[in-house]
Design a protein around this nucleic acid. Structure first.
Lengths: 236, 236
DNA sequence: GTTTTTGTTAATGTAAGGTTAAATGGTAAG
DNA sequence: CTTACCATTTAACCTTACATTAACAAAAAC
């Protein structure tokens, strides 16, 4: 699998500071989603798949702590960093109680932020068993090499797969004969769950079905409203 | 099984406040049923299946306490939260005596309400053994896979089931050879008990009977005015 | 025997999924 | 700088799946 860009959710209501910070992080090879308030932040969090959340503490409607708590309920793993203007001790305590991974006082040195981000990502990378590391699959008569992105049928011709084709087929293979929820592929591969990504996914399902037609025992079934199922019949 | 939306019954006679609150909760991903007085509240409670009740204490004809008592008679589990304008101590006591889970004084911070709701739902989620987790059933010669929604007869052809077919058959299977009350399926699956949902359920019973005809030892019997019974005869 | 409940089939409306082609956007070659 | 190519998204349109409602028949209760 190619190195995915690390994704950061930045929730910051100050438009100037937020934009500057977003640009700075983008320039340093992070993919940044910027939400302008707590509500928006939570919505975006639910729809995406983030490696780190940076939350401003002081926000108008929903403060950073409340947001952090909501995020923690959905996901116990994702690292959270708080930004705060004033360094009040009780706030810091509150933050760590909610499961903060770090704390930064505004104004802060942007390089310090980068280093901290790097450190946090690495720390997490180690103790995360991470989404299965399996990259080779036997699917009926096919062999999928997900690292090199190709599919072979009975040792014959290799079909090259595009990145999306590859990841989608891999995710189906990880759930062989079982349900692969639509939502899972959308949040993990497309990193967004909406009408258009869903349409896009259908296009890719069609492409995969075309490839898999070679083996009549392999098919991708739809489970209406739930997702897809890669089934392999053994009628040998 | 997919995450069901949590359902809230809101009983509040003030139309303005009620509507605003309903909208606010809806925006936060709750499915809200709004009743404008105690009578209506009780009717709707009986017909639906709610995860939480929010009751205004001061209501014209039937006050919140009386309503709460009636609700408790029907269901000892469902969490109840009272809304009250004045914070009179004896009222609070009365509320807890009726089995309140929490108390909120108007005007209240809407975020506080959200947090309390979440906390209560979680608390309940833990001590609820939750509706059976069984998803595979043997019904005479049939195998029902309720997660992937299909029915197999003697290991042969698979029939795909629609979500409603699947849930209904699963509920029948959970009560195999016993009465499955009409009302149970309607409140649990259709989440509403009225003439039309009842007719709809009959339609689904007919569909299931068609599927089950393959095995002469399996049938769905009606118990007039009560419900249905999935019987498996062992005349081997 | 009349009313209520249930059985069954068909009609309707809506949402989800399937398919194809064109638009977009990035990247490498010319 | 322009062109050509590729992966992906967007758009349009079509098909299928599903749930509800209607309409009428049959059975049970009263």
């Amino acid at each position: 699998m190619d190195e995915q860009l690390k994704r950061i959710l930045l929730v910051e209501d100050d438009p100037n500071f937020g934009t500057v910070l977003k640009d700075y992080l983008s320039m340093n090879d992070y993919e940044v989603t910027h939400a302008k308030n707590g509500m928006e932040g939570f919505e975006k969090f639910k729809r995406g798949d983030f490696d780190l959340c940076i939350l401003d503490v002081m926000m108008p409607y929903k403060d950073g702590f409340t947001l952090a708590k909501e995020i923690r309920e959905k996901n116990a793993e994702v690292p959270i960093v708080f930004l705060t203007a004033k360094a009040m001790k009780e706030d810091v305590l509150k933050g760590y109680k909610v499961g903060a991974d770090d704390y930064l006082n505004k104004p802060f040195d942007s390089e310090v932020l980068l280093m901290k981000i790097k450190a946090i990502m690495q720390r997490k990378a180690n103790d995360t068993v991470a989404d299965s590391k399996q990259f080779e699959f036997k699917i009926g008569g096919f062999d999928l090499n997900s690292k090199l992105r190709f599919l072979t049928y009975n040792g014959g011709e290799q079909v090259k797969l595009s990145p999306k084709e590859n990841e989608l087929l891999r995710m189906l293979a990880l759930h062989e004969n079982d349900l692969m929820p639509r939502e899972l592929a959308l949040t993990k591969i497309w990193r967004d769950d909406n009408y258009f990504t869903s349409r896009s996914m259908d296009v890719y399902i069609a492409k995969l079905r075309k490839y898999l037609k070679l083996d009549p025992n392999v098919e991708i079934l739809n489970i209406h409203g739930e997702g897809f199922r890669l089934v392999v019949n053994q009628n040998d």
